[in-house]
Design a protein around this nucleic acid. Structure first.
Length: 591
RNA sequence: GGUCCGGUAGCUCAGUUGGAUAGAGCAUCAGCCUUCUAAGCUGAGGGUCAUUGGUUCGAAUCCAAUCCGGAUCACCA
């Protein structure tokens, strides 16, 4: 049990003993004590004043007295300032914690609870390479999955690949028209980048054709539909759906190129999946559910044959679920795929990591599920994250204004290489060790940069300014980890040696922070928010860094102090490594 | 226009769900390497928490109105 939970429990027991009423942890608030006051945790008295009809200080005195007298193993002292009861946790509590946990790599994590969660993330299109926005999605999804695991859930990572549709046909048409038989191999280009070039080519050509038509006097709206390359693309989509062999062959060939490219990127950034869904397999799903919905009168069929759901009563609009020709739309397959996930895996919760531009869509999906009365409707959760934008605005693959994923990773690794060489601390590393280190630092800095902010906030990335390696960054945390490991390599624990009986302020601050790790994992899991972990780990590293500058471990005043500090350092290293792992960031033994 | 999200230091962001004098990093300035890794440490300056009103012991946090920015409201996905 965490010290916070113990404090809540003992406070309830004390209040009940003192005042003969029953209480819950919601009747009072517990905070960490501000550094300018004496104590570790603070119980705020004001909320108790009304029901107890006594002054805050009077209640605080009785409670503080009762807690220190009856729970001496937990609390050693108290003071009251303006209605805040500040409690000092007994040093023996922290010392015991340290002795028991200093070398436990599972510290803070929950045992398996049996809950099964699916996290869908990444969801790429097979007509272009991944960009910085996809990286935010990938890092978030992967990290949330790890955080949920650490909190006791069984997690399945899934991915729906957007591998068919008009946008895929666009790059296919452009390749047919302009490539002259070129391939990724013949041009020595990564497959996803190769295909992406033709997606851009399509749009260039499409714009030209529109301009010509408009120049000839056609209204712009008509020109968009009448442009020959667009008509050819639409014909190709129909041929694809009809299964025309040469189109299918081309589709398979070009998707194959993209997958070869994606495999490399996913391997580099450390994304993995337990289950792949392909839209080419799922796009017909959901049609039978629409029929059920019609029978249940959840959906309505209009005279032209199209099927709709009326969500105006819920503050939304009428939404199409089936076209008049009977073909399905985006939401139709999502309804079907949601069902399939439950049928296949018997999951308790389904999390979709999707950008906030699709908030409306996901709301509609959930509402439809509710109205259909499916049992999992409330267990669908949209983890909505903000877009990554450039100072000039949104990134657009069509127009080539994107920060490419492969490029930015390579740049970060290169940056790591330069800085490492400047510092010259690892001159004895072999070449493969060096490249591994650059990867760890460069990718770590990038992941941390994208994960340290609240997911739901949009973020602006300025390619002109390089991502920092100092301060609130992964390299700073990694650096502190490496410093600890260095100390631990040079100084051995002494068996059965006592670790003394008290703490200096920075030692205390560190152990109090370390103790909170489990609670932080719990919070991050509840809120699906990796930034909670990032901020916490950074603060641990920062506290350690101050401590490290202030006090010597190797030359501590006494053997006891040295042992205590070695334990503290060891536990700090474990928590840093564990927390960074939840973010998908590894930590080097040296740097 | 409807719905939703956001506005905190020059910049990028925290702010424990209503608690004590609003905190970090970057940038600026001043110190600190003959001792465990200076990708570091210590200190300084920097704030009308968009604005106005309300709720109460107490508001950056909750409510209302207003201003500004963004997303979305396709027989696209």
């Amino acid at each position: 049990m965490s010290i916070l939970a113990s404090l809540q429990k003992s406070t309830i027991e004390s209040l009940e003993a003192l005042f003969g009423q029953s209480f819950t942890e919601k009747d009072f608030q517990v905070n960490q004590t501000k550094p300018e006051f004496e104590g570790d945790y603070t119980v705020v008295m004001f909320s108790l004043v009304k029901s107890l009809k006594q002054s805050p200080d009077a209640i605080g005195n009785q409670l503080g007295e009762h807690l220190t007298k009856n729970y001496p193993q937990l609390f050693s002292a108290y003071n009251i300032i303006k209605g805040f009861l500040n409690l000092s946790v007994a040093d023996s509590y922290w010392l015991t914690l340290l002795q028991e946990q200093y070398n436990d790599i599972c510290f803070g994590k929950q045992p398996i609870s049996g809950k099964k969660v699916m996290v869908e993330y990444s969801s790429p299109n097979t007509n272009k390479p991944l960009h910085l926005g996809h990286l935010r999605n990938n890092f978030l999804g992967w990290s949330v999955a790890e955080i949920l695991k650490a909190n006791g859930n069984t997690v399945l990572k899934s991915c729906i690949v957007n591998d068919r549709g008009i946008h895929i046909c666009k790059s296919m048409i452009a390749w047919e028209k302009f490539a002259d038989g070129k391939t990724p191999q013949s041009t020595n280009t990564k497959g996803d980048h190769f295909v992406g070039e033709y997606y851009v080519k399509f749009n260039d050509e499409y714009k030209k054709e529109i301009a010509t038509l408009v120049g000839g006097g056609m209204p712009a709206a008509d020109a968009e539909k009448e442009a020959p390359i667009m008509k050819a693309t639409q014909q190709m989509l129909q041929d694809w759906e009809a299964g025309k062999p040469d189109v299918i062959d081309l589709w398979k060939k070009m998707n194959g190129w993209v997958y070869e490219g994606f495999d490399i990127t996913y391997k580099t950034i450390g994304s993995d999946f337990d289950k792949m869904y392909y839209e080419s397999n799922t796009y017909l799903l959901g049609k039978d559910i629409v029929q059920t919905g019609l029978d249940k009168k959840v959906f309505i069929r209009k005279p032209d044959g199209s099927v709709w759901i009326d969500l105006t009563a819920d503050g939304l609009d009428e939404k199409l679920v089936l076209r008049k020709d009977g073909t399905s739309v985006y939401i139709t397959q999502d309804i079907g795929l949601a069902q399939q996930k439950w049928d296949e895996y018997n999951i308790d919760k389904s999390i979709y990591v999707i950008g906030d531009e699709q908030n409306y869509h996901m709301k509609v999906l959930q509402l439809i599920c509710k109205k259909m009365g499916v049992p999992y409707a409330d267990d669908i959760h949209h983890l909505s994250y903000g877009m990554v934008e450039l100072p000039t605005g949104k990134m657009k693959s069509r127009e080539g204004t994107v920060v490419d994923a492969d490029d930015i990773v390579a740049e970060m690794e290169n940056e790591a290489k330069q800085k490492t060489e400047e510092l010259g601390k690892v001159k004895d590393f072999a070449q493969n060790e060096l490249s591994a280190l650059y990867h760890t630092i460069g990718l770590g800095a990038l992941k941390f940069f994208l994960l340290r902010v609240d997911p739901k906030k949009k973020m602006i990335f300025n390619p002109e300014e390089s991502i920092d390696f100092h301060g609130f960054t992964a390299p700073f945390i990694q650096y502190n980890y490496a410093r600890i490991k260095s100390v631990l390599r040079k100084n051995e624990f002494i068996k059965d040696k006592s670790i003394g009986t008290n703490f200096l302020p920075l030692e205390k601050e560190l152990i109090v922070s370390l103790e909170r790790y489990g609670s932080v994992i719990g919070e991050a899991a509840n809120e699906l928010n990796p930034s909670a972990i990032a901020i916490y780990i950074y603060n641990i590293a920062k506290t350690f860094s101050s401590f490290f500058a202030e006090h010597s471990i190797a030359n501590a005043e006494t053997e006891e102090k040295k042992q205590l500090r070695l334990y503290l350092a060891s536990m700090t290293a474990n928590v840093i490594k564990s927390g960074m792992q939840l973010l998908g960031i590894s930590v080097p033994e040296r740097m």
